[in-house]
């Protein structure tokens, strides 16, 4: 009962603060792929794996007063920042969640840019393909991003690293 909501609040508690909606989307996706049992369904959207369910659930948590969303005015765009409220913490106390320790994974994800997480999540989306085809597909679906060979190499290293944590 509202377990999926509770799992997300747990994530926000671990992260303390998450900056950027896109980054949030990619973090949850990568955590799912690293065996953290989040259940939001992802589809490939124009710019990578995206979960409408996650967007809606986060909004629900904000409406319920369990999360705050603050809008930061950057030079050319707005950025959204999320924190858990005391009500959210109280809500979470009602649940006994069977979640693995995510602290190190979340810290690692937070330290990366949303562009890098977009690259990682896109590679993971195509991980059933042979590696050469994964890279080919990546360039096909994201021609404007111009990901360099160096970035791609770094992304594969990152995937191994986060799965080992």
């Amino acid at each position: 009962m509202l377990i999926k909501h509770a799992k997300l609040i747990h994530f926000f508690c671990v992260a303390n603060e998450v900056t950027g909606r896109k980054k949030l989307q990619k973090m949850i996706y990568i955590l799912q792929k690293a065996d953290c049992p989040f259940e939001e369904k992802y589809q490939f959207h124009f710019y990578g794996p995206y979960s409408e369910e996650l967007t809606l659930r986060v909004e629900e948590l904000c409406n319920l007063g369990f999360l705050t969303e603050t809008k930061e005015d950057k030079a050319n765009y707005f950025q959204y920042c999320y924190h858990v409220t005391p009500e959210g913490e109280n809500f979470l106390k009602q649940f006994t969640l069977d979640m693995p320790d995510m602290m190190e994974k979340v810290d690692l994800l937070k330290s990366k840019s949303s562009r890098f997480l977009e690259l990682v999540s896109t590679i993971l989306y195509f991980e059933d393909l042979p590696q050469l085809e994964q890279v080919e597909k990546l360039h096909q679906v994201k021609p404007k991003q111009n990901f360099s060979d160096e970035e791609i190499k770094e992304a594969y290293k990152f995937i191994t690293q986060i799965r080992e944590l």
């Binding site: 009962m1 509202l2 909501h5 950027g20 909606r21 896109k22 989307q25 959207h45 124009f46 710019y47 990578g48 995206y50 409408e52 967007t55 809606l56 659930r57 909004e59 629900e60 950057k74 050319n76 765009y77 707005f78 950025q79 959204y80």
Partner: peptide, 20 residues
């Protein structure tokens, strides 16, 4: 407890919501 949510239309927010 059952929850339903909908987003009737979303728009592009540069740098942020570039998914839809």
């Amino acid at each position: 407890v059952d929850s339903s949510s909908d987003l009737p239309y979303d728009f592009y927010r540069p740098g942020e919501e570039e998914e839809r």
